[in-house]
Design a protein around this nucleic acid. Sequence first.
DNA 1: CCCTAAAACCGTAATCATTCCTATTTACAA
DNA 2: TTGTAAATAGGAATGATTACGGTTTTAGGG
Lengths: 137, 137
Amino acid sequence: MKTSEAIELLKKKGYKTTGKRKDILTYFENEDGYRTAKDLILHLEETYEGISFDTIYRNLHLYHDVGILEVTELNGEKHFRMNCTHHHHHHFICKECGKTKEIEVCPMEEVRKSLSNYEIEDHKFEIYGLCPGCQTV
Amino acid sequence: MKTSEAIELLKKKGYKTTGKRKDILTYFENEDGYRTAKDLILHLEETYEGISFDTIYRNLHLYHDVGILEVTELNGEKHFRMNCTHHHHHHFICKECGKTKEIEVCPMEEVRKSLSNYEIEDHKFEIYGLCPGCQTV
DNA sequence: CCCTAAAACCGTAATCATTCCTATTTACAA
DNA sequence: TTGTAAATAGGAATGATTACGGTTTTAGGG
């Protein structure tokens, strides 16, 4: 998702536009990978001295709720990235830099068959390791 | 994995056997699903008044390190279950009771092909929802 | 352009899971 | 039985996240 697209979505839902909100979106658009609240606050502090945890987490949750951000939990810390809206897919996630690569494979079709009595709400398929750039051969 | 099997494994690796350690294993063997440190400490406090967090976490980590327990992170909390040693598979996890159901499908074979330059260390494939027993129709 | 209510925000305290630290106790091999 | 390294208790420390009262900013109608 693009920043402009996200801002439109927020407006349509009646949320107010602020400088911080725009900057958070721009940050994630540029980062292209999973980032933590800590990463984000460090970035925003350059521009907004004294920015509050509350602002960071409130907006991360808001963005996640409206579908702008995806979230995953690694090492006891939540990681966020821009939502990929084009089609359903999963990710390889680099343990070092947090960058992701799309994985087209999704076996849910097959899985559903073997879970006929179960109410499936969600699923997670993630591959972890080192991306080419982070391998210290 | 069975409790007896796990105790053998620990002995072989030179770890001491204590009542608490045995009880932790028995607990997980009986529970058959993902459980948190909190769940475990509540159970052990019935028998061992004043048991320490340290003991709980130290043993959970030990068991995970030697392969007795599997771990996954849900809602900011680590969840543990007995390791399934018989063959590679994944789990449906009930959001309500933590019980699991084995899923045979694993698409990693296919995935590896599309990640030739990547160093794959691990992967997670989990399905979340409500098991038949927890659905409030 | 101005005003007002609602939304955002700050500063900080509280919470929750987890880890760390030191003194004491225990398992078990010799 | 005993020596010693491992295990434990009790509690403090840490780190991420949430909560909250008071203040500022935004959106939008007049």
